[in-house]
Design a protein around this nucleic acid. Structure first.
Lengths: 206, 206, 206, 206
DNA sequence: GATGAATGAGCGTTCATTCAT
DNA sequence: AATGAATGAACGCTCATTCAT
């Protein structure tokens, strides 16, 4: 059993090391040597677990994306049972999402997706299956229920979700300078508030 | 004079070829050989004009960014003199911006900025000087005038501009799959409409 | 163990191949490709053992210099116990030194030292630690003892050693045309004799 | 006429620039671009005057060698009419030769000859025609006359010249560290004295 | 005759990948 | 299963040399 554990641990270490190095250097610049060093194994060991540098890249992206998504979905929790003050719940979820979105790993993931999407068209599945799309769907689900409950103006909940996220995350790109700067907490809160305000006006949140 | 023209032409050809290849391959994968071939010159000729692969990258980005920005600023023209129907003017500008934003060169530029911003921190100047920031400022200028004219709810025009662009462009990322898919015209128009609607509600456009 | 041997052998082969090629082509003209071929390995293997072309150069020089010096010191042996006929012992040592000094490897080493001393100032250590300086000191030691034994005119043994070597080796440069020509045995013997004669006169050898 | 002058001047500038750069960098490392810059002309101008980098090298060596030799021959002047004190005359010539031999241009020339003699076998002619050999012959001429005048022990004047120069210049190599260090005046004088002393003993100078 | 511009060929170095152990 | 060692293939960059002006 310890063997199996060890093997799994090593695989995990390789995937994490790979993501770390890919995030730092980019796909092409990252060298397998460095990944192996980061993971604390020898270079051929990497090849024993993954056939290719490309495969290694795909698997490490997938693992990171899964982790990131889980956190984002969890951030929507306040909307499951918003209580009387819907705006407060939106505000809370918005704050959490903003923080997750400006997190280092999240930014690195986004950067990698953008830069390699043309060389690895299949990583689009990551975006669709476990990326922003699913977040939008999950949010749309919440908003649909709230619409039915009369707390939102009637309308397409997919559109509502899309606009909520756009208002919230759209300004991030410019403010964080493509994810290279971290924002002060106060600014993050102000951004969440502004997004929720606009959303509330546009969708008659009550 | 023809000499000078020839030199300028060659420099231009190199910059364009460089952008083409960088856009297709990314910085690290792009090989100078290929850039030279694309520009129709020999490899050392590239080095006669640019000292470095890195310098070549920076200059080609800058040229592309300038071209892209000029078009975007021009797209705001309808807002200069909106006439009676402000929503129509917004709609028109929105449609143009959306089309510019989904243009191949524009997407490639955004991809390159995202992927290399960590290796070339100075390309942030491009974003600030000639990128989205300046578009937001230009739009804010227009909206400020409109606010003074009483056509918009009183409020921070910078915020209004930010939110307009967020509502308009935010959904693009998911819908174009990080810029790899082109959208049908109808969908673009619908997106513009939805963004303008939401903006109008949130800012009492009249 | 065979592994270790193999690695050591390969390192040795690389150093020897490097000296051969450097000696033939000079530092700048020598290409690592050729060195690898000469050593019977692939080019990257060279870089697995030595970080640099420069490092490779230094190490190959050092190895060659050590080998050359060992032989030269050994050539002084006849002076350790010269017996009755000191001139004969000097003559014998002189002959040996002359032959070592006109040896191909020795000439190549001298050429390389001269040509690259300005680019690699640290190779002066080779000259001082294992080159002519140490030969002079070793010879001075012998002559000091002989002086004490009254077989030489009293005087500075360092100067005596310096002059002995100068008389012996000085004429070589011109006669071998900077080390490119080999001299007939008879001429070598005559040179040794002439040097010993002059030295004997100048220092009252008995 | 000014044209012709200008052309000659330019040729001269190129040759001098070439020697300067070759001396600094060595043949292979020296790039024609740098030589042109040093000479204050454009690169193709160099090729208008010399067909080749190799030809350029040969001609620049030749010019430098001629200049160096002229000075050395002139240094023997004191021996033309030594007066009563032959040792003083020898001493004077020795001092001058030593200074010329440790001069920067002289060292550079020697370095270049050593390093490129295998690639350019024909530069040996420089050594023979205008180099040390001719100095030895010129000195032998002087010593022959002195021998006839009974101021030296009877013997082969060629050998005497060879030994005088060997005693004088042989120690230089070690002391100047292959020509990279300059020696203090006092040390130069001491070396001249030591060489003359030894020569005087060996050849019964009176 | 002098020059700015262009190029073919080559070199040092790196790296993904594979063997032998 | 894990590793040290080796390699084939590229790539960035330089340079001697040549045209066209």
């Amino acid at each position: 059993m310890s063997t199996t554990r060890g093997r799994i641990d090593k695989r995990q270490a390789i995937l994490e090391g790979a993501f770390t190095v890919f995030a730092r250097e980019g796909y092409a610049q990252a060298c397998v040597q460095a990944i192996a060093r980061e993971a604390g194994v020898a270079k051929p060991t990497v090849y024993n677990h993954m056939t290719d540098k490309a495969t290694l890249f795909r698997h490490s992206l997938e693992a990171a994306a899964r982790a990131v998504l889980d956190e984002r979905i969890a951030a929507l929790e306040p909307l499951a049972d918003p209580g009387d003050d819907l705006r407060a719940a939106l505000q809370q979820a918005a704050g959490r999402l903003l923080r997750l979105h400006t997190d280092g790993r999240s930014c690195a993931l986004r950067r990698l997706l953008y830069s390699e999407v043309t060389h690895f068209p299949d990583i689009l599945d990551i975006v669709k299956d476990s990326g922003p799309d699913r977040l939008t769907r999950a949010l749309a689900d919440r908003l649909a229920r709230l619409t039915l409950a009369g707390r939102l103006r009637a309308g397409d909940p997919d559109l509502a979700a899309e606009q909520f996220l756009a208002l919230l995350l759209g300004p991030l790109e410019a403010r964080t300078q493509l994810g290279t700067r971290t924002l002060p907490e106060a600014e993050l809160d102000a951004m969440a508030q502004a997004a929720v305000d606009a959303f509330a006006r546009a969708w008659d949140v009550s």
